[in-house]
Design a protein around this nucleic acid. Structure first.
Length: 222
DNA sequence: AACGGAAGCAACCGCGAGCGA
DNA sequence: GTCGCTCGCGGTTGCTTCCGT
């Protein structure tokens, strides 16, 4: 079986354009099929990811509003790391984006905590330097843990803390400052979310011409 | 201006759920 | 009932950009 090599890494404009065209033709479901017929030398998985996280016309780009930030924190404390679920409450934001935001937020948090000097008594330090001392490697360093568990090496034994434990620890301080978050849902704009199907449902027109009103695609327009 | 570290972001990987044959 | 395939999700990685020194 001559397993063909799939392309990896950053997408080119040409690839984006192809993908958008074929999604316009066949819809955003059958990714393996789209990957094949489009001639993109990518996996269906890769195509889907690119579409969902970057090319989808309903995506908002740019910085999160304070309102969105609050919502993320609130929902994360309610649901944990159910990023796709959280993303559904933030139209135009992807799970990946939210996940990234959250990581960044936690990193900042850890930093502030460190500066605010919470000494050793508070469970285990989130401080990257401290955990570096302990485990050689900080799970905060560049994109997180190598595994989802953090080892804190004690004098005679190793203790393992799941990420959940750590998040919980942070959540407590988070919730204190958050007080009681009201149930806020941003109303969908020109497109609607349909929870039972794909992330977003576009009207037929934008399905056929996905790039028509998206600034990103305007450069393809001529 | 150069450098290093932190932050931001796009993309990949592995696993599990769902579904049809 | 099971097997294989596809898709979606969460975690992780690595590159780029930003910012302080």
């Amino acid at each position: 079986m001559v397993q063909e090599e799939f392309r990896k890494g950053p997408w080119t404009e040409e690839e984006d354009f192809k993908l958008v065209s074929f999604v316009g033709l066949f819809g955003d479901r059958r990714w393996d099929f789209i990957a094949k017929v489009s001639g993109l030398n990518r996996t269906g998985k890769s195509c889907r990811l690119r579409w969902v996280n970057y090319l989808h016309p309903g995506l908002k780009r740019g910085k999160m509003s304070p309102h969105e930030e609050r919502l993320v924190l609130d929902l994360q404390s309610k649901w944990g790391n159910r990023w796709s679920r959280i993303a559904r409450k933030l139209p135009g934001r992807t799970d990946n984006e939210i996940k990234n935001y959250w990581r960044t937020h936690m990193r900042k948090k850890a930093h502030e905590k460190k500066r605010g000097s919470i000494p050793s008594t508070e469970h285990h330090s989130m401080d990257s330097h401290a955990s570096k001392k302990a485990g050689e490697e900080s799970f905060y360093d560049t994109g997180g843990s190598k595994s989802s568990q953090v080892k804190i090496v004690g004098e005679e034994h190793e203790q393992e803390f799941s990420m959940d434990d750590i998040w919980k620890d942070i959540d407590i301080s988070e919730e204190n400052s958050l007080q009681q978050p009201e149930e806020v849902i941003i109303p969908p704009s020109s497109w609607e979310y349909n929870s039972s199907d794909s992330l977003w449902v576009m009207d037929e027109e934008s399905m056929l011409f996905p790039m028509s009103d998206d600034p990103y695609f305007s450069r393809y327009a001529n």
